[in-house]
Design a protein around this nucleic acid. Structure first.
Lengths: 142, 142
DNA sequence: CTTGAAGCTATAGCTGCTAGAGGTCGTACA
DNA sequence: TGTACGACCTCTAGCAGCTATAGCTTCAAG
């Protein structure tokens, strides 16, 4: 039987975060000692690992909830899990291309700065005048 | 004289967001009509454009506050603005490499899914067992 | 003079945690 | 058996950066 602290150590999660997952229904309510402290078994450890791993891959808590449901019903088609993963991949790709545009723009800003006075600082100038941008970059969004 | 709605349209900002920027001191308190409605001039429009553009480039509101201060004092050295931009560039580069690792991992998950039952869905399997990952991907962080 | 869009304030909510206060439990050691 | 002390408990508030709602007032066109 694992304490919440042991769970936290094994999964690299903060104790508070585990309690938060319980609160929002991602983790089940565990058993308690007589004094009211949580005690976990291996199933809960696996579930928490699943959640953490999915978070590291950038899945939202809502997506993870769905994935957990699918994982709990092993007979159903995996098409849905696949769809969720594809959606996530698409998002990551979109973010990547936006970030690449930003990198280009920032590099240009930084390389053109000659180190003089702010009056003619290229960094500030570019920020002042959007038309100087080579790329479109509307919304960074995560 | 521009209404808040006109400002919003011209800069692609929500009206509420402009009021929010005023509240946190990023935008100055504008003049008002007798009835209490905000009226803006060109200086405010420029400032808001600056803020929005910097946001699109991923700068935090705190960084923008600093950049605005520098922009307001044209005599000072632009070294600081340069430093802020470089910091931002570094962050973007870090995010890029993390996202690239995620993309690789997600692609692998998705490509290996054969479309069967969730019992042996590769997507769920990978999530269950972190050791199957080829790359390290601790923390996505924005 | 009326109508309706656009403005106003104030407050709460979103995601995904994280931190703090103030108190209780569990266990190892003397 | 007592006690010390770390780990646990609940509850609440806070972070970024907005966004949305409710309930009201103002502005400008017809």
């Amino acid at each position: 039987m694992l304490t919440i602290g042991a769970m936290a150590r094994k999964t690299g999660t903060k104790v508070q975060t585990i309690r938060y997952y319980e609160q929002i229904g991602l983790m089940p309510e565990p058993g308690r000692t007589e004094g009211g402290q949580r005690r976990y078994g291996d199933a809960e450890l696996d579930r928490l690992s699943f959640v953490r791993h999915a978070r590291q891959l950038g899945f939202s808590l809502d997506a993870i909830r769905e994935l957990l449901n699918l994982s709990d019903n092993p007979g159903t088609s995996c098409a849905e899990a696949d769809a969720i993963a594809r959606r996530q991949l698409k998002q990551v790709e979109q973010r990547l291309s936006r970030l690449e545009a930003l990198r280009t723009e920032l590099e240009r800003m930084v390389h053109e700065c000659s180190g003089g006075r702010t009056a003619d600082c290229r960094v500030l100038e570019v920020l002042r005048d959007h038309s100087e941008c080579l790329t479109e970059h509307d919304e960074v969004g995560l």
